[in-house]
Structures are given as C-alpha cells and as structure tokens.
C-alpha cells in the first residue's frame, strides 16, 4: 500500500469520483428496512482515502464532504461534518497499523472506528433532538462488512489508473 508514487491528478480524479459516487449512493431512495441498515458509503470511502492518501484527502476534505452530506440530508449543518472529520483523523492516525493487516483483519479494526463515527452521529442527534435512535448503529455493522469489497474495488481502480498513467 505504500506505492503512492503515481501522478497526482490521476489520484485526485479518482478520489473525487469515488467520493461523488459514494454521495450519490447514499442519496438513493432507501426506505423501510434498507434505510435502517443503510451503510455509510461516504464514511468508508473517506476512511479508505484518509488511510491511503492522507495528503490528498484529509480532515478538511472530509469535513467539506460532511457539510455537503448535511445539506442533502437536511440534518443540522456540521453533524456529518464532525463525524467525517473524526473518521478521517482516525484513518490518518491509524493508517500504518491498519495497512500492515490483511483486508479481513482490517475490517475488524475498522468496525470500532465506524461504530465510533455512528455513535458520534447518534450522540449529536440525541443532544439536538432529545432521543436516541439505536437502530441507526446497525448501519455501522453493515458498513464494516462492506469494507472488504469497497477496499478491493478502490485498490483495483487505483492500480488500473496507476498502470495506465505510467504507460
């Protein structure tokens, strides 16, 4: 995972695109049971990029994306932003430890981070609205399960880009 040599714009484009797609995925018209277990794609992608490319996708980017998510979600401004900033920080801090583990082990390590992120969201929600929606935490489990496929996909894309840009 230390091969962060490839050209900068290629990675920037990939980061932007993946974040954009993640946002679109979270805006899909989820409802019913799916809405309850809806995984946070944006959190996953942000976590991945903050671990892989902390220079390109840091806390600032995460915070900005969070603001966009807040606007789209009609939640209070800063709610998602706070969560994503914390998540990006965790990704940056823990990147070395996590990058030494295999993907499946990573998923186990990522789960507490996601749980933390979801918990922050729930706590903020509780502070603002006065009640706790525990079911919301289910999303963290599903998100952790999705860590493996999302990471694999992004790695594949990253390698494809790198090889194509080197050619």
């Amino acid at each position: 995972m230390s091969d962060y040599q490839p050209s900068l714009p290629a990675h920037t484009a990939l980061i932007v695109t993946s974040l954009f797609v993640a946002l679109l995925l979270s805006w899909l018209p989820w409802h019913g049971f799916l809405l309850i277990i809806r995984p946070d794609f944006v959190a996953l992608v942000l976590l991945y990029w903050s671990m892989q490319k902390p220079n390109h996708c840091g806390i600032g980017i995460a915070w900005t994306v969070g603001i966009i998510a807040d606007v789209a979600d009609a939640s209070f401004l800063g709610q998602h932003a706070l969560v994503y900033a914390v998540l990006a920080f965790c990704g940056i801090v823990l990147q070395r430890r996590l990058s030494m583990l295999s993907l499946s082990q990573q998923a186990l390590q990522v789960f507490p981070l996601l749980l933390l992120a979801y918990s922050i969201y729930v706590i903020v929600h509780w502070q603002l609205h006065g009640y706790v929606s525990w079911v919301h935490l289910l999303g963290s489990v599903v998100s952790a399960l999705l860590w493996l496929p999302v990471t694999t996909l992004l790695q594949k894309l990253c390698h494809a880009r790198a090889s194509s840009s080197q050619r």
């Binding site: 902390p54 840091g58 806390i59 915070w63 401004l77 932003a81 706070l82 914390v86 940056i92 990147q95």
Partner: peptide, 25 residues
Amino acid sequence: YSSNKFSPTVRLIFFGLLSLVLLFI
C-alpha cells in the same frame, strides 16, 4: 505523510470545533 503545516490533531480539533459551532448556530 502530511505536507500540511498543522498536525492531524490540530486539524481535528479545528474542524471538530467548527462543526460544533456550526451545529450550535
């Protein structure tokens, strides 16, 4: 890894506080 002037902790504190202020406002 970071070319930024500030450490991640500082940035986290900054953005975290910013979020909280925004939330409050």
